[in-house]
C-alpha cells in the first residue's frame, strides 16, 4: 500500500488528456465500489423483511441488535450484547497474533534473503513468492488436510512416538491462527525484504566501529530505518486477517467464528438478514479505515522528520 504517490510529475506530456485517462478508473471504481459501499451504509439502516429480503424503511434495529441484548422476547431492559463484540474481539486478537507471528518469522527471513549475494537472492525470493501466488483456497484446504485428526501430521507424530493419540487441532482457535499465519506470511516477508534491500549497511559498519553489540545495532539503528517496510507488512497481514473468511470457515468450524463468517452467514447462509450483515460489514470497514488512517498519519509524520 506504500504505493507510488507521484509527488511532482517528471513530465506533463499527457496533461491535456489526463481527464480522459483518469476517467475509466474514476468511473469503474467510483461506480462499482465507492457507490456500492455507500449503498451498503444505507442498507444497514433498512428493515429486514420477515422471511428474508429487505423493506425500504428506516430502522436502527441492525445496530441495536449488534450492541444491545433485549432478551428472547425483546421486552427485557436492554443490556450490552457481548456476542458480536466477542466475535470482533476474537477476530482482532487472532489477526493481531497472526501479525506478530508473521513478523517474528518474516523479519529474519526477509533479512536473510536481502543479505544474500545478488545471484542467489533472486532464487530465495522466488521460493518465497511461489506460495504467495498459489490460490488461497487451495492453501487453506491443504492446511485443513494436514492437521485433521487422522491427517498426515497426527499420523506422523504418532509414528515417531511423540504422541499416543491424535491431537485435535481442527475446529479450534489454534487451527484458525495457523491458517491465518500461513495464509498471509508472504505478505509480511515481501515489504520488509524491499526495505532491507535498500538499507545502507554502512550504518552498521559505523556502529560496529563504535563497538555497538550486533543485536543493539539491529534494534536501535536498523529497525527505525526499515520501519516503513515493517509497518506495511503488518498492515498487509492484519487487515486481510481481520476480515478473513476461508481460514475461520474451513479450519475453525462453526464455533470459532470471526467477522467474515458472521457477515457471510447473513448473505449466503440461512440467516438471510441483509441489513444486519451490512451493519456488521460497516463496523468492520470503520475499524479498518481507522487503522489505515493512523498508519497514514504516522507515515506522514515519519517522512516529515
Amino acid at each position: 500500500m506504500a504505493g507510488l504517490v507521484p509527488s511532482s510529475g517528471k513530465s506533463a506530456a499527457f496533461a491535456p488528456a489526463r481527464i480522459w485517462l483518469m476517467l475509466p478508473s474514476w468511473a469503474s471504481i467510483g461506480f462499482f465500489l465507492l457507490l456500492p459501499v455507500l449503498l451498503m451504509l444505507v442498507y444497514s439502516f433498512l428493515t429486514k423483511e420477515f422471511r428474508g429480503g429487505v423493506v425500504w424503511e428506516f430502522s436502527l434495529s441492525s445496530y441495536d441488535r449488534f450492541f444491545l441484548d433485549r432478551g428472547l422476547f425483546g421486552d427485557e431492559p436492554p443490556q450490552i450484547e457481548w456476542t458480536y463484540i466477542a466475535i470482533f474481539w476474537r477476530s482482532a486478537w487472532q489477526a493481531g497474533l497472526a501479525t506478530i507471528l508473521c513478523l517474528i518469522v518474516g523479519f529474519p527471513t526477509a533479512w536473510f534473503i536481502a543479505t544474500r549475494p545478488s545471484h542467489t537472492r533472486s532464487l530465495w525470493l522466488f521460493l518465497i513468492t511461489i506460495p504467495y501466488w498459489v490460490n488461497l483456497l487451495i492453501r487453506t484446504v491443504s492446511m485443513k488436510f494436514l492437521i485433521r485428526d487422522n491427517g498426515p501430521l497426527n499420523e506422523w507424530l504418532m509414528a515417531i512416538g511423540l504422541i499416543d493419540a491424535p491431537i485435535t487441532m481442527i475446529n479450534t482457535n489454534f487451527a484458525v491462527q495457523l491458517g491465518l499465519f500461513y495464509s498471509y506470511l508472504p505478505f509480511m516477508v515481501l515489504p520488509i525484504y524491499a526495505a532491507v534491500e535498500r538499507y545502507n549497511f554502512a550504518l552498521n559498519e559505523a556502529a560496529a566501529d563504535l563497538y555497538a553489540p550486533k543485536w543493539r545495532v539491529l534494534w536501535l539503528i536498523v529497525l527505525p530505518v526499515v520501519r516503513p517496510g515493517v509497518i506495511a507488512g503488518c498492515i498487509l497481514v492484519f487487515v486481510p486477517s481481520l476480515g478473513a473468511f476461508l481460514a475461520p470457515d474451513l479450519l475453525g468450524g462453526a464455533k470459532n467464528w470471526m467477522i467474515g463468517s458472521l457477515i457471510e452467514d447473513q448473505f449466503k447462509g440461512a440467516a438471510g438478514n441483509w441489513p444486519f450483515g451490512a451493519a456488521v460489514a460497516m463496523v468492520l470497514l470503520s475499524i479498518v479505515l481507522v487503522v489505515l488512517f493512523i498508519y497514514a498519519r504516522s507515515h506522514a509524520r515519519a517522512s516529515e522528520q
Binding site: 500500500m1 504505493g3 504517490v5 507521484p6 483518469m22 478508473s25 474514476w26 471504481i29 467510483g30 462499482f32 465500489l33 465507492l34 457507490l35 456500492p36 459501499v37 449503498l39 451498503m40 442498507y43 487487515v239 486481510p240 481481520l242 476480515g243 473468511f245 467477522i259 467474515g260 457477515i263 457471510e264 448473505f267 441483509w274 450483515g277 451490512a278 460489514a281 468492520l284 470497514l285 479498518v288 479505515l289 489505515l292
Partner: peptide, 25 residues
C-alpha cells in the same frame, strides 16, 4: 491525491466488505 486514493480503494476495503457492497449494489 483523491484519484490516487480511489485507485487504491480496492486494496483498503476488506474483501468481504467489497463482496457485500457489490452484491447489494
Amino acid at each position: 491525491s483523491a484519484s490516487f486514493a480511489l485507485i487504491n480503494l480496492p486494496l483498503m476495503v476488506p474483501e468481504i466488505v467489497t463482496a457485500v457492497a457489490t452484491l447489494i449494489f
